[in-house]
Design a protein around this nucleic acid. Structure first.
Length: 579
RNA sequence: GCACCAGUAGCUCAGCUGGAUAGAGCGCCGCCCUCCGAAGGCGGAGGUCACAGGUUCGACUCCUGUCUGGUGUACCA
């Protein structure tokens, strides 16, 4: 079935001689009442037709006959405004949403174009900090969006399980007199203490840094005992990570991290040699990128003076592996903006290695999460006083606050510990996802956990209200039969608040596409906000149950609920049924 | 120095591939529950879209420059 835009293009094309696709792309959605539902700006035609845009619009408005699905065409200030037949529009939109259910908005755009998304990728031996939430949830959201667009998606958690950090942990572990017997009772908290202890000790004894590098070099060389320690550190961390990912409802297809590639560096190093890219500088092996035409780019350090490898060496191996393993069309790296130079270097080296797919690797950067300091300045680091910056603590703190509010507002649901956590997750995730990916976020507890306005709970609440009505009407979620549409009085949806909801529902597929193209979930978070807003307004003004329009309004409730749930899930906010 | 990013209302932020009168939330001032969830809705005050040029029929949006802020810049990841 032709879309409304396609129908408009088909009418304008013969009258103007313009390409139908170009017309479709030029059509805009008017922002103001009285400007219709779709507009075609006539300004670009002025030059070729040698007439004023206003005149062109006037003539077109007079000569064109409103096509099927439209009630009238009006000219206004150079715009050709199309007014849809609202009843028919609603019929089409609700029909699509309800019959397609969770598949509404799906696309085959990505079929045969595998996408690899590298995100979260925490370091082993360290607790997940609150600021890890952003990258984790952006990656999670993009994974879902790309899957919905039909792409085969591989979600990769490129664990930071190799590197000098392990040398530090090993050094401290040994120094504290701990041994193999202590491994079974080892905790992640303990590992974190070892890190802190190392940093403190290293301030007084700078030679510890060298000891750590040596320990790591030994580990990389295959030392058996150090390998046992390393493995134990890694396992302890993974247990806690899996627990947190479960709370966030985030999954991965691959947990292959840096250690995996540490054993697969030979082909990379051989290839670098073969292409004659390596040079020695200050005792280390580097790729002098500037010498290869990347003006102003610092050299990429491939191997340290002591022979051990670095981040970028392993990333090169990982990139080659991913191309070989998944034959990706796109490879995304969801990593904070501070790493942009690293990725520029990485992609440049891949290009120099002759990988024609290097241009299809993309860094998806995101901004920092800033917190207000005691002095009132915004800075990177800890959350407000009294709150730790560990993700688990932030989640627990948020859950407690939400539980307290719930106990007040809805005592029955307030007893549900798991529900409070899901609302807390929704609030925190939404507060980060509603902003543009690259913007630094100024994080405020009050705003993030707010139950009002532009917040996760506001959107969740719209979903809850819709669910509540359906529950009272005895309608199961996602139950739909074609006969439900028989004899529906479509004209009822012409009422403004109802139509506003239908209009938003029609925009959902495009918004999913926009999120994919911009690689930014904020598009969908903002959409969820608009739909929640329209929903609250509709429910405020129109009684559903027991009204003369109950049947029609229930259909709108079902459609809105279905799409709102989808938008929330794509963003990574739980679509809950009660709160 | 170089690189990446940002600068929109008192605060925190939206503004789709340039389009018609600049949009929310919080805060402030009012109003609305005998009515499916008031975790809601309605109204009001509040903006020279950092600044200066340029491209264009049209610029918050694109380009250049300036200013301000954040981040990164060789043996951490």
């Amino acid at each position: 079935m032709a879309t409304f835009k396609q129908t408009i293009a088909a009418v304008i094309a013969p009258a103007t001689g313009l390409d139908a696709e170009a017309i479709e792309a030029a059509i805009t959605l008017p922002q103001h009442d009285g400007h219709g539902d779709f507009s075609f700006p006539c300004f670009p035609l002025a030059k070729t037709l040698r007439k004023s845009p206003a005149l062109i619009a006037d003539e077109l408005a007079r000569s064109l006959i409103p096509p099927q699905g439209f009630s009238k065409i009006e000219a206004l200030a150079g715009y050709l405004n199309f007014f849809v037949d609202k009843a028919l529009f609603a019929q089409r939109v609700l029909g699509e949403v309800l019959t397609q259910g969770a598949a509404y908005g799906n696309s085959t755009e990505g079929a045969g174009k595998p996408v690899v998304i590298d995100f979260s990728s925490p370091n082993m031996g360290k607790e997940l900090a609150f600021h890890h939430l952003r990258g984790t949830m952006i990656g999670n959201s993009l994974s879902r969006v790309y899957a919905k667009r039909g792409h085969p998606v591989t979600r990769v958690n490129h664990l930071g399980d190799w590197g000098t950090s392990y040398g530090k942990l090993i050094v401290m572990f040994v120094r504290e007199g701990l041994g193999e017997k202590d491994l079974p009772t080892l905790t992640l908290e303990h590992l974190n203490r070892l890190y802190k202890a190392f940093s403190q000790a290293a301030e007084k004894e700078p030679e510890l840094e060298n000891a750590a590098r040596e320990a790591f070099a030994k580990l990389e060389a295959g030392d058996a005992y150090f390998h046992v320690l390393w493995n134990a550190f890694r396992e302890v961390t993974l247990v806690e990570l899996r627990r947190l990912y479960a709370i966030l409802n985030v999954d991965f297809d691959s947990w292959v991290g840096e250690a995996f590639f540490a054993n697969r560096l030979q082909p990379v190093l051989a290839l670098l040699e073969e292409k004659k890219l390596l040079t020695t500088s200050q005792g280390a092996e580097v790729v002098d990128l500037e010498a290869f035409g990347a003006t102003g780019m610092p050299p990429a350090l491939i191997r340290k003076t002591d022979g051990s490898t670095l981040y970028i060496t392993r990333d090169l191996a990982a990139a080659l592996y991913r191309q070989a393993e998944y034959a990706f069309d796109r490879s995304f790296y969801v990593v904070d903006n501070g790493q942009s130079l690293h990725f520029q270097q990485l992609f440049k080296v891949l290009e120099l290695l002759g990988c024609d797919w290097a241009s299809r690797c993309e860094h998806i950067p995101f901004g920092l999460v800033l917190h207000k300091s005691e002095e009132g300045n915004w800075e990177k680091g800890k959350t407000r006083s009294g709150h730790s910056s560990l993700l688990k603590d932030v989640l627990e703190g948020a859950r407690e606050k939400i539980a307290a509010i719930m106990a007040e507002k809805n005592p029955d649901a307030g007893k549900d510990v798991d529900l409070a956590l899901r609302i807390a997750v929704g609030a925190l995730v939404f507060s980060e996802m509603k902003n543009r990916r690259l913007n630094d976020i100024r994080f405020e507890w009050e705003q993030a956990l707010s139950f009002e306005g532009d917040s996760g709970p506001y959107v969740q609440n719209a979903h809850v209200r819709l669910c509540s009505i359906l529950r009272k009407a005895g309608i199961q979620l996602n139950s739909f039969y074609p006969k439900d549409l028989d004899g529906v009085r479509w004209g009822i949806y012409e009422e403004p608040a109802s139509f506003a909801v239908a209009e938003l529902l029609s925009q959902f597929p495009d918004r999913v596409g926009a999120a994919a193209i911009s690689r930014d979930p904020c598009t969908l978070a903002q959409y969820a906000l608009s739909l929640a807003d329209a929903t609250h307004r509709f429910l405020h003004g129109s009684r559903v149950l027991g009204s003369d329009e109950e049947r029609e309004r229930l259909l709108l409730v079902r459609a809105a609920r279905s799409v709102l749930a989808q938008a929330l899930e794509l963003v990574g906010v739980p679509a809950i049924e009660r709160m």
